[in-house]
Design a protein around this nucleic acid. Structure first.
Lengths: 339, 339
DNA sequence: CTGAAAGCGCTTACAG
DNA sequence: CTGAAAGCGCTTACAG
């Protein structure tokens, strides 16, 4: 039987026997926290390599070591944005020997108990709908938490990581861009949500939009509360028919911006001449629509890098921090034909 | 201190004390595998509810119970197709009290050792590039495995789950559809891969395409080996300039189909009049391109349901099966303007 | 320098 | 019917 081919559970005991040492020695070699005679160390290392041994993660975690699992909570797993982000994080996590567990943001009260089971070394929260109250509980329980700042988290106290992905500034820049092109009647298209969660002013995209509109003394219109693309189209139809015709549309994400763009086009308006449209996330959609869609890009690679870096810091030296870790990232606007 | 608010680690011991019973009793109540006097059972159940107790998953798993974690290996985490699928699976998994860990298909030899650590109750493989050899090893080690049949897995033996998502039949239908519209010079656009993994005839989409072309005695062209969208565009440019102009294009997925469509349009060809285009996966992209893209849809909800159902069967009664579990799903073609 | 032993939080065979 | 005890695979304080 070739041990390389046949998968069976190798335990520390197997290694001890194979290397002709005590089980204790094996542990110390693995953890590197005690001097072990060179000769023994070699034998153990060889045995580990030969038998393809990996210490049982669960047994280690039970003894207080890391589980090497990180939980990622997202409110829009389906979206291309999270797909890319998760993909980048996965790559980084893999080299750090971590696994990423992905979970939608379930709303029931039991959820937080379920994720707080000492199982995860840390939790990344990329969801606008996770209750602040529960985030605070997790932080208070000293679980390493990294927040993607989709909304305002300034009320959260304690030690945690905060990644400002530039949504607020990016949204302001959208308004600025539209304004500079002479657009004055701006329309914001909020998320489509079948679970009934829409943005409020805690949401950085919406807040950036309204704040910058205030700077210019504009009175923008916000379309919110839609639970499907068709509903959004219908609402726009009604709105434009009723006499209000915007000259600039900002969609909370590319998909929504494009639904808006198509609705306007169907009603005979030209993009960008009559109505300019800008999206968010710079997904693949932007390149295949016509006109192609101008969009704000979040630098996922950089976000992913920061997420992992912060998480590793919090996991490895959480006790050495006294306040939250913060990082501010920039977005960039990718100009295309829709503006 | 309100125990509902404060998150601390509650162990079986806490429950035993709270309920005034032995720790053993607590275990038996949780596992329901021994009669416990009604009165005691009640007390224990109340204590569990009051303290929000959840047995430590790792300790249970160490004793041979389930870890309630399933690993999902995908070769294209970024893609919208997997996003939707994962999202559906997550919903189902959550109600079954499972977590889904997501992992790209890493190519190093250590990968299989890493995932085989008794940590995962089962593994779903949705990747065309995971070596058959390693799949077989995992199955031989009696880990519940569910394969999404992206390629031909008929050589894999033993007990496992196989979900045929209808890629082969769907691809044949694409050819049939194009043929019925009078298209005879068909072009297949293979995946874009930066890691250098392209399709061979193990791949059901490609095989369906070529098989159906044979039925009609067509001599199709296949464009493969591109590592970026730009490279694919360039290749198409060269191909069409050199005199070969297809009248039907089948893209391995929507994105690739659209890259092909745009390249043709840039060269002055009309879609669908000169060249018809069909994609795969029916992603959001299809609805926003112009012309909108006809595409083959895989019923993700149904795939997700089958994945979880099979996985649960394999985990709970794996010993009672003697051969692989199979299910065949249908795709449907969503007709739009590109054909 | 190094081994035997306690213990992480559980499950369940074993012995009352 | 039910409790004390062994043990899952580890880590590391404790005692040589």
């Amino acid at each position: 039987m070739d041990s390389k081919k046949d998968l069976r559970t190798i335990t520390r005991k197997d290694i001890a026997i194979e290397a002709g040492v005590t089980e204790t020695i094996v542990s110390y070699v693995i953890n590197g926290n005690r001097y072990v005679k060179e000769e023994k160390r070699k034998k153990v290392e060889e045995a580990i390599a030969r038998l393809n041994y990996r210490p049982n993660t669960m047994a280690r975690a039970l003894k207080g070591k890391k589980s090497n699992h990180i939980l990622f909570i997202a409110d829009d797993i389906k979206g291309e944005y999270f797909g890319k982000l998760i993909s980048e994080i996965d790559t980084l996590a893999y080299t750090e020997d971590y696994f990423i567990t992905l979970c939608a943001d379930h709303q029931d009260e039991d959820f937080v108990n379920r994720i707080y089971s000492k199982f995860f070394d840390g939790i990344v929260i990329g969801s606008a709908s996770f209750p602040l109250y529960n985030i605070q509980r997790l932080i208070d329980a000293h679980i390493p938490i990294v927040l993607l700042e989709i909304r305002d988290y300034s009320s959260i106290t304690g030690v945690y990581g905060l990644i400002n992905t530039g949504l607020y500034e990016g949204s302001r820049r959208v308004v600025r861009t539209l304004y500079e092109r002479g657009k004055r009647k701006l329309l914001f298209l909020d998320r489509i949500s079948s679970s009934g969660v829409w943005s409020n002013l805690d949401d950085w995209r919406l807040k950036g939009f309204t704040d910058q509109c205030s700077v210019y003394n504009l009175e923008p219109v916000i379309v919110s509360g839609c639970s499907s693309e068709d509903e959004l189209s219908a609402k726009l139809f009604d709105l434009l028919s009723s006499g209000y015709v915007p000259d600039g549309i900002f969609g909370r994400n590319d998909q929504i911006a494009l639904v808006g763009m198509q609705a306007c086009q169907k009603m005979g308006y030209k993009v960008p001449q009559d109505i300019a449209v800008i999206g968010f996330d710079n997904t693949r959609l932007c390149r295949f629509s016509s006109p192609t869609l101008t969009s704000v890009e979040i630098e996922q690679k950089e976000v992913a890098r920061c997420v992992m870096e912060m998480m590793m810091s919090l996991i490895d030296n959480s006790s050495s921090f006294e306040k939250r870790l913060e990082v501010y990232l920039d977005t960039k606007m990718v100009m295309r034909e829709s503006v």
